[in-house]
Computed example of a mutant assay.
Amino acid sequence: MKKLTILFLIIINLFAYEKIIYPSYISKLTFNKKYLIAGLENGEIIIKNFKTLKNINTIILPKIHDFMDELIPMPIYSLDISPENNNLLILAQGENAFKIIYLYNF
């Protein structure tokens, strides 16, 4: 599986039109005809214009306490954007492992 992942990344790098670099690891990624949206492991969600790849907006989710009572970035489980309008649905983990749904309009 690891070899397949590395091969896939090499192929993407060879045929990619542009390389996009984010400040943290990407945990979730979604897009539509207008926007490319990446949920990062540091609790940020970066919204880019799909055609120009310029940053439009950054959403910073609040930090939560883990089971050791340390502050950690809020884990992002899912991102979904509506095809017609600018509604973003974010499923994340809140305090005490509760799930939180944010509806963000940009």
Rank of each mutant, 00 (worst) to 15 (best):
M1E: 12
M1G: 10
M1P: 08
M1I: 03
M1R: 07
K3T: 05
K3Q: 13
K3S: 09
L4D: 14
L4M: 15
L4S: 02
T5I: 03
T5Y: 15
I6V: 09
I6A: 01
I6G: 00
L7Q: 15
L7F: 10
F8Y: 10
F8N: 06
F8S: 08
L9I: 12
L9W: 01
I10N: 06
I10H: 11
I11H: 02
I11V: 05
I11G: 07
I11W: 00
I12S: 15
I12F: 13
I12G: 09
I12D: 12
I12K: 15
N13A: 06
N13I: 03
N13G: 06
N13K: 14
L14G: 00
L14P: 06
F15L: 05
F15R: 04
F15I: 08
A16K: 14
A16N: 05
Y17A: 07
Y17R: 14
Y17L: 03
E18C: 09
K19L: 07
K19C: 05
K19P: 04
K19R: 08
I20Y: 13
I20N: 07
I20K: 11
I20H: 14
I21M: 14
I21C: 13
Y22I: 11
Y22W: 04
P23G: 04
P23D: 15
S24L: 02
S24Q: 02
S24V: 11
Y25M: 07
I26Q: 13
I26Y: 15
I26H: 11
S27V: 15
S27D: 09
L29R: 07
L29N: 06
L29A: 08
L29Y: 00
T30D: 12
T30R: 06
T30A: 00
F31P: 12
F31C: 14
F31Q: 10
F31M: 14
N32I: 08
N32L: 10
K33I: 04
K34H: 04
K34N: 13
Y35P: 05
Y35M: 04
Y35T: 02
Y35G: 03
Y35C: 07
L36T: 07
L36G: 03
I37N: 08
A38D: 05
A38S: 13
G39K: 08
G39E: 00
L40K: 01
E41W: 15
E41I: 12
N42V: 06
N42I: 02
G43P: 01
G43V: 01
E44W: 02
I45D: 11
I45G: 06
I45W: 01
I46T: 03
I47F: 01
I47K: 09
K48I: 07
K48S: 12
K48N: 15
N49E: 13
N49I: 10
F50P: 00
F50T: 02
F50G: 10
F50K: 01
K51C: 13
K51Q: 00
K51T: 12
K51E: 02
T52E: 10
L53V: 09
K54N: 15
K54G: 11
N55L: 01
N55A: 08
N55G: 02
N55V: 01
N55K: 09
I56E: 05
I56H: 02
I56W: 09
I56S: 05
N57P: 05
N57Q: 14
N57V: 08
T58G: 06
T58A: 01
I59P: 00
I60Q: 12
